[in-house]
Computed example of a mutant assay.
Amino acid sequence: MLRFTALQWIIMIPVYSVLRNAEPALGVPTENLSVCEYGMYRNGSFGCVNCDCFRPGTSIPLGKITALNIDYDGVLPCDAFSGQCKCYGEHTGRACDQCAPLTFNDTSGVAGGPLGRCMLCNCEREASTNDTCDAVTGQCTCRNTNIFGRTCDMCRKGFCSHPLCEPCENVVAAALSAAYPAVLNATLNIFRGFYFTMARGYFA
């Protein structure tokens, strides 16, 4: 059992009083200085700071399912020590506020998802120059000016046969040219049959 002298008690009582009434660090529970409050993480000498997870790119906590996680307005937690938020879909970064390669930040809703959600480029492989797209608009780079659409999936008016998208008259002419020998042979066969039939009837 520890025993203190009167002088030690006189010194310790004011120190204890100061420590007892001291304010804890922001966001740090008094009962456990190694763990931050829900929705916060320990950031070195800064103490406990908010996770600040990017809402459209962060998965909502288990048991908080809504139609879209963007509808959830509660606290989004992160790893208590690294601060890493739990990213949803194609989102990356500590706060899930960045898009992975071959995706774009759909701020206008052109891909049909919630605003601000990272969506796949989905460029038409045969009609675009590569698989990447504009990081904001999601526009793929089409192989030629006759092709259009965000994913390069359509031919402009007057052009046919996607993904080549050539002038329609050229496509029709090529089709007729390819079919002409077969049509000609079929026609000749009809006339040959008719001729031989008539010849048999005449000489019978």
Rank of each mutant, 00 (worst) to 15 (best):
N105W: 10
C123N: 02
P101R: 04
T129M: 14
Y202P: 01
V15A: 11
P101E: 05
Y41W: 13
I10V: 14
L120S: 13
Y41P: 00
R125D: 14
D97L: 03
D71E: 15
G193E: 13
G83Q: 02
V110D: 10
P167V: 03
L120C: 10
Q84W: 04
G193K: 11
D73R: 14
C36R: 00
I65P: 03
H91M: 11
G57N: 10
A80V: 10
L26T: 09
F148E: 05
R3S: 07
F203P: 03
F54K: 08
G57F: 01
V49D: 08
G93K: 03
P61W: 07
C53W: 01
C53A: 09
A179F: 10
T137G: 05
W9C: 15
C165T: 02
N189M: 12
G47C: 06
N43T: 04
F46Y: 09
H162T: 00
D71M: 12
V183K: 11
G109Q: 09
L184N: 10
Y72M: 09
C133G: 04
A111G: 13
N69S: 12
T103G: 07
I10M: 15
R117M: 14
E23R: 13
C160W: 02
N185S: 07
Y88L: 14
N69W: 02
R42E: 02
V49Q: 13
I190G: 13
M119R: 09
Y16E: 08
A80N: 10
N105F: 13
T137E: 04
A25V: 14
C123T: 02
F81T: 12
N130A: 04
G83T: 01
T151D: 09
S17F: 09
R94F: 06
N146K: 01
Q84V: 09
T103F: 06
Q98A: 10
L102D: 05
G158N: 00
F4D: 05
C78G: 05
I65K: 12
N146H: 01
C85H: 01
C168L: 06
G27A: 10
